[in-house]
């Protein structure tokens, strides 16, 4: 019996290794494949991208510029989901931050104070989520659904009736510097917002790999009871993670608001779905315990390349369908690969 076992063990072992290799690195192959398809596809006949091919300097700069909010959010959201929690309010928190930032700027507050104040607002928003989930023990989905509605409502109330967004007009004028953060190239013709996004991602990669918060987040998501019994203050960890997500939502809001040069109370609508899609695509388990900030970063680049690149291939009204299908496929393949499938 030993011989057949040895023979059959070979391929299974190799299969196992291939499966593991695929699971660990598939996101990079997907990235290359998406870029390859978008570069090869002929774009010349479409008027949207008169500059030519996908992989030209201006297009890359454009994609990276508009990716800043998503990249900023993806890392923190990954850590939160690794710990087994979720924040559906990120889109609304982003809208609210965008409105607050624009309001401060238009009323004459200089860049740095406005920036810091908005980030502080983000901390507060994240802390409220943490309070509802950790202290009041409301299910994360419901708690953040409540704040989704709340933050969006406040953002709408901050913008006066009859106006759709905070912008120049009615005696107030957006300051000239407002656009710079999200648009003006500072390094490699990429704007500040993008470099902040990269910085946030790098910091969170280090947090995940080298600090206790990262280890504790994975422990909390992998087995909350065991984590609690081994002395980890899971509640505190979750609270901190919600706070970090709040900060990144504020940064994303500032980036979006500065890029569009207005404070739109609906600018973050649907962002929570895009972030979830990105994080799941990056291989993070919905039930918590595993996931990598670095992979979510690549997944964010994939989704942004797809959404921008797709505009040159199909009409804009295909976007919801494509993103929805991608969300389903990412979620399903995640759960089939990790075989951690549990219903509900």
């Amino acid at each position: 019996m030993s011989q057949p076992t040895a023979i059959s063990q070979g391929p299974t072992d190799r299969n196992g290794r291939i499966a593991r290799f695929l699971r660990d690195y598939y996101i990079y192959f997907v990235f290359v494949a998406v870029i390859a398809v978008l570069s090869v596809a002929n774009l010349d006949q479409f008027t949207l991208f008169e500059r030519g091919n996908f992989l030209n300097k201006y297009n890359i700069i454009n994609i990276l510029r508009v990716s800043a909010p998503l990249i900023t959010l993806a890392g923190a959201f990954t850590l939160l989901m690794v710990s087994g929690y979720i924040d559906l309010s990120v889109g609304s928190a982003m809208s609210l931050s965008a409105v607050v930032y624009a309001l401060l700027a238009i009323n004459g507050v200089p860049f740095l104070p406005a920036f810091v104040a908005t980030v502080a607002v983000g901390v507060v928003l994240g802390t409220i989520n943490g309070f509802l989930v950790v202290r009041l023990k409301i299910t994360p989905v419901i708690a953040t659904l409540i704040t989704l509605s709340l933050y969006k409502g406040i953002a709408l109330l901050l913008v006066q009736d009859g106006v759709s967004a905070i912008k120049s007009g009615g005696g107030l004028k957006m300051p000239a510097w407002f656009n710079d953060y999200g648009r003006e190239g500072v390094l490699l013709s990429l704007p500040m917002a993008f470099w902040v996004a990269i910085l946030v991602t790098l910091v969170l990669i280090i947090v995940q790999k080298r600090t206790l918060i990262g280890k504790y987040a994975a422990a909390t998501g992998g087995n909350p009871t065991a984590a609690k019994l081994s002395g980890i203050k899971t509640g505190k960890i979750v609270w901190v993670l919600y706070g970090i997500v709040g900060v990144t939502a504020a940064l994303a809001g500032i980036a979006r608001s500065s890029f569009m040069s207005l404070g739109d109370p609906l600018s973050g609508d649907g962002m929570e779905l895009t972030v979830i899609l990105v994080v799941l695509l990056g291989g993070t388990a919905f039930s918590g315990g595993e996931g990598r900030v670095s992979k979510s970063f690549v997944a964010a680049l994939i989704i942004m390349s797809l959404t921008v690149g797709m505009l040159t291939l199909v009409p804009a009204y295909y976007q919801t369908l494509v993103i929805g299908s991608a969300l389903l496929l990412a979620a399903a393949s995640n759960h089939i690969v990790s075989k951690k499938g549990k219903s509900s």
């Binding site: 779905l273 799941l280 929805g324 389903l328 399903a332 549990k342 219903s343 509900s344």
Partner: peptide, 17 residues
């Protein structure tokens, strides 16, 4: 065995899409 909240958010987008 995918969590129902993710599935139905996805199918919501697919249906509307």
């Amino acid at each position: 065995g995918v969590p129902s909240i993710i599935v139905t958010l996805g199918t919501m987008m697919v249906a509307r899409g």
